[in-house]
Design a protein around this nucleic acid. Structure first.
Length: 564
RNA sequence: CGGGGCGUGGCGCAGCUUGGCAGCGCGUCUGGUUUGGGACCAGAAGGUCGGAGGUUCAAAUCCUCUCGCCCCGACCA
């Protein structure tokens, strides 16, 4: 490709509020342009990288026996109603009505469509197993798109869905996908950490997320430096260490705490610390009120709480509901005198003389002890693990890191096949539900992820496997006949050898071309300049900036050796 | 959803507090000098100041509404 014909408008500067390095550099180097919040164009360079990533994914998926297809992005509302996910995923669904008034959604994911397809096409155990995938734009109305391609509303995704006869079949497919994912990320040059994760709204335990550890990430990951255990904070197990109380219980007392409805306000007012306070959160679990008790400085793990309750829906109570069930306003709830079911975080059992709400306006209780609480409390692990908590397996303190989720493999089991009644007939003639798995990769997010981990002050640095071109050839002075002639010669020799080369033939000053080359980040650079008369040129590596002089006759061989 | 910020030639920004001919840098075009790390000189083109309404002799500037974008936080009591 001749740079003079390439549509890659590079930018010297971008808006000051573009913060992430990946976002800024992809914009500056002309890979992407934003059209609307979380909606981007992939320009020729960006699209080439995306296609290289897609090719790697295809090769590895096909190797694992999966088959590619392409499903519609437009989904009839009825299908989403049938699976029950129109309600649970309502907030992220983007859609429209057609001229007859029919409601459609733009696919945020394709379990419904693929399961509908398979239930119509699969009758017998002889038709299984199946593993079908596609690479396609997904549409999600993210409440807050951010960080460029890291969280977009329209993004390219590889999604695969497996259909097996039984658990053993699903296990085999799941394990094969795990290995496939490891290979894919490795080939993209991404250091990935596979972590235990939660199945989100669908539930289920066997699921792994493939995370890039980076500050730009939105998920919190807990890592054990000793045994290698790694998990999303949503699910991380930890060993509880309860300090034995050194204080004698004091008599409970009521105190006025006007206008103090947050933990911090109460602490400021009473001159105490959040860890001396029991916070009482009122939730509605499938319509019934429950209370979660947690230390003032901790965060409730809602997912864990929901699973503990066995509830399908869990939401915070409204101020009106809190008044109704606790007798007090928001911000003054406490375990003393509460009559709704209470669930306490295990960590609280060792607390003495703590502070809690009095279930009355502008009032808290001090020196509360568990003997003051009449109702029954179910003790359980309710809070999130944090850095410093110790590993369940080996007792080593966790390290906490941010992670960007690039892939997710997940045993769906019957979560979709049951509501959609996707069944098959087994050897004995019995009708059984198909057991499913799903496996996603954020393809466009990989573009950002690689940019995030692989760049320097001058620009991007692509790994050869997904770089838009292999070689960036520059003619320092395009007006010089000798230089020009040699550059053209090198250009055709490289192309004849099947090497993808971006040839900067523009009549620009050399400095501009060097800057653009470093920005764009093609891994190998060749500069034809002053010594062109001797048939020699500079060969250099973008990542290290190391350069050597080579003769035109050895250039193809040399490039090949570097690409191998 | 809550809070904050920003919308001004293609891009990045100043001007707004205190209303009075719309500016700067980059880019673009023309001519010349340059030519290995985002050159220099001279000249030129290019903007209904996001949109609507209002106040005023006069609005980019003040007021109201609205749309868009960015950031922080999201029912944490």
């Amino acid at each position: 490709m001749r740079f003079s014909q390439l549509f890659a408008p590079t930018l010297r500067e971008v808006s000051a509020d573009v913060e992430l390095a990946s976002h800024r550099l992809l914009l500056r180097a002309g890979y992407i342009r934003q059209l609307a919040a979380g909606v981007y164009t992939f320009m020729p360079l960006g699209w080439r990288v995306l296609n290289n990533v897609s090719d790697i994914i295809r090769e590895e998926m096909d190797r694992a026996g999966a088959q590619e297809l392409l499903m519609p992005a437009i989904h009839p509302q009825e299908l989403w109603a049938e699976s029950g996910r129109e309600a649970t995923m309502h907030d992220v669904l983007l859609g429209f009505k057609d001229r007859k008034g029919g409601q459609f959604y733009l696919g945020p994911t394709h379990e419904e469509v693929i399961t509908d397809l398979v239930r119509r096409g699969v009758r017998s155990y002889r038709d299984l197993p199946l593993n079908l995938y596609q690479i396609q734009m997904k549409f999600r109305d993210e409440p807050r798109p951010r960080g460029g391609l890291i969280r977009a509303r329209e993004f390219l995704m590889k999604d695969a869905y497996s259909f097996d006869r039984d658990e053993a079949g699903l296990d085999a497919t799941y394990n094969a996908m795990y290995d496939t994912y490891v290979r894919i990320f490795q080939r993209c040059g991404l250091p990935i950490t596979a972590v235990d994760a939660s199945g989100g709204a669908i539930g289920g335990k066997e699921t792994k997320e493939f995370m890039l550890l980076a500050d730009a990430g939105e998920d919190s990951i807990l890592l054990c430096p000793k045994c290698g255990y790694a998990a999303n904070q949503e699910i991380a197990d930890f060993r509880l260490i309860v300090a034995t109380p050194a204080e004698e219980p004091q008599p409970m007392a009521k105190v006025d705490t006007p206008d103090a409805h947050t933990v911090q306000q109460v602490c400021d007012f009473l001159h105490t610390m959040p860890e001396r306070l029991v916070k009482t959160l009122i939730y509605m679990a499938d319509g019934k009120p429950v209370a979660a008790l947690i230390r003032g400085d901790r965060e409730l793990n809602e997912g864990r709480f929901r699973v503990l309750l066995g509830a399908a829906r869990l939401e915070m109570a409204t101020p009106e509901q809190i008044q109704q069930y606790t007798g007090g306003p928001v911000g003054f709830s406490g375990p003393v005198g509460l009559t709704i079911p209470m669930y306490g975080d295990e960590e609280l059992r060792g607390m003495v003389n703590f502070v809690a709400g009095a279930n009355a306006g502008d009032t808290h209780l001090v020196n509360v002890n568990w003997t003051d609480v009449q109702g029954n409390i179910t003790w359980a692990r309710l809070r999130f693990a944090v850095a410093g908590d110790v590993c369940e397996k080996c007792g080593e303190p966790f390290i906490e890191r941010k992670g960007v989720e690039l892939g997710h493999i997940f045993k769906l089991r019957y979560a979709i096949s049951e509501p959609l009644q996707a069944t098959f007939t087994d050897e004995e003639g019995a009708e059984k539900l198909i057991i499913m798995g799903c496996y996603g990769i954020g393809v466009s997010r990989i573009l950002a992820a690689v940019a995030e981990v692989s760049h320097d002050d001058d620009g991007l640095i692509w790994p050869t496997s997904i770089a838009p071109y292999h070689v960036h050839l520059i003619v320092a002075n395009a007006g010089d006949e000798v230089q020009r002639g040699l550059a053209e010669d090198v250009y055709s020799r490289l192309r004849d050898a099947g090497i993808e080369v971006l040839y900067d033939d523009r009549a620009e000053r050399a400095g501009i071309k060097f800057k653009d080359a470093d920005l764009i980040g093609v891994p190998l650079q060749i500069v034809v300049g002053k010594v062109a008369g001797e048939g020699r040129m500079e060969f250099r590596e973008r990542a290290t900036k190391q350069a050597e002089m080579l003769h035109v006759d050895e250039i193809v061989q040399h490039v090949r050796a570097r690409l191998a």
